[in-house]
């Protein structure tokens, strides 16, 4: 059963179309929602929560229709907005307890849950101080804690790493990963930084100008770009020689800067073929490594060419 499903979801503002006929399915686990600023990520989240009405189309969250069962959805979903949302003169502890109550938890349960989630997000003694004095990293943690306090079945995290330094960014991403894997809560996390989502998400959805550019498992993204980097020596033109031999053997090979050759992996025998050809040519194999492609590379190519990912490079 999909966690989120949309059909022809469209949101038009007077001047812009934020979402354009979007068909989407989001399953369990961690799903990354990627797109440039203004691609429609935040709009999609707000529509799913019922904060903003859709212009047309339909969507359901955890089998509840967004149009008619908004309250039921909001009871089951945690939301961490992108922008600031913390009052300055209240402590994180009091605030998270209060929002737990706002989600229907009785006061004692809200207190217990608040203490629990604040510990999980890593707010220790500072939770008793007014949030106005928090660093950006602490504010993001408090925002995350309020999204988790009512033990939701799905959390919508809008740019959780926004404005964080590299160390805080890493620990925030670790947290997101733990929410999906250890806590067993489905996660939809947005970012305009693809490298981040590659690390944490099981599935990546790419939005561009409010339309779906691509939706697939993170491993698929990386798999389609699987290639090997090969370096050989023994003769001055060793790389050209091997490249020629590889192409003749039916493999896709091209120069990859310097003396390196990039070879597309056709099947599991490709490394063996490269090794044998090198030996046949009397060359020395210096190294053969997997080229670590990133989602970013795929994304860049797709946006640039506007074609499907399965299309091979020219």
């Amino acid at each position: 059963m999909p966690v989120i499903e949309t059909q022809g979801l469209t949101k038009r503002y007077p001047r812009v179309t934020a979402l354009d006929d979007l068909d989407l399915t989001v399953g369990d686990g961690i799903t990354g929602l990627v797109g440039a600023n203004g691609a429609g990520k935040s709009t999609l989240i707000k529509i799913l929560l019922g904060l903003v009405p859709a212009t047309s189309g339909s969507a359901s969250v955890l089998s509840h229709d967004i149009g008619t069962e908004g309250a039921a959805i909001r009871a089951l979903v945690g939301y961490m907005p992108e922008h600031d949302c913390l009052p300055a003169d209240v402590s994180a502890s009091d605030f998270v307890v209060h929002l737990g109550q706002m989600s229907g938890l009785p006061y004692p349960a809200a207190r217990e849950r608040a203490a629990d989630v604040l510990r999980h997000v890593g707010l220790a003694e500072e939770r008793y101080r007014p949030m106005g004095g928090y660093s950006t990293g602490m504010k993001q943690r408090a925002k995350l804690a309020q999204a988790l306090v009512h033990d939701p079945r799905l959390v919508l995290l809008d740019e959780p790493t926004n404005g964080l330094d590299p160390a805080s960014r890493d620990s925030m991403l670790d947290l997101v990963k733990r929410i999906g894997s250890d806590f067993g809560i489905a996660v939809l996390v947005t970012s305009h930084l693809l490298g981040e989502l590659e690390r944490v998400s099981d599935h990546v959805i790419v939005l561009d100008s409010g339309a779906l550019l691509r939706s697939s498992a993170t491993t698929d993204f990386l798999h389609t770009t699987g290639s090997l980097l090969v370096e050989v020596q023994g003769r001055p033109d060793a790389d050209r020689l091997l490249g020629q031999a590889l192409v003749e053997a039916g493999l896709q090979a091209r120069p990859a800067g310097g003396v390196l050759i990039e070879v597309d992996v056709a099947d599991e025998h490709t490394p063996d073929v490269i090794r044998d050809l090198t030996v046949d040519l009397g060359l020395g194999l210096v190294r053969m490594q997997e080229r670590h492609h990133r989602i970013e590379d795929v994304f860049r190519e797709e946006v640039a060419t506007g074609v499907h990912p399965d299309a091979q490079r020219p």
């Binding site: 929560l49 939301y79 949302c85 989600s103």
Partner: peptide
Amino acid sequence: RFGTITLYLARPIR
């Protein structure tokens, strides 16, 4: 001012 209203509206309360 602090945008806290969003957190209330994102909860079941009307």
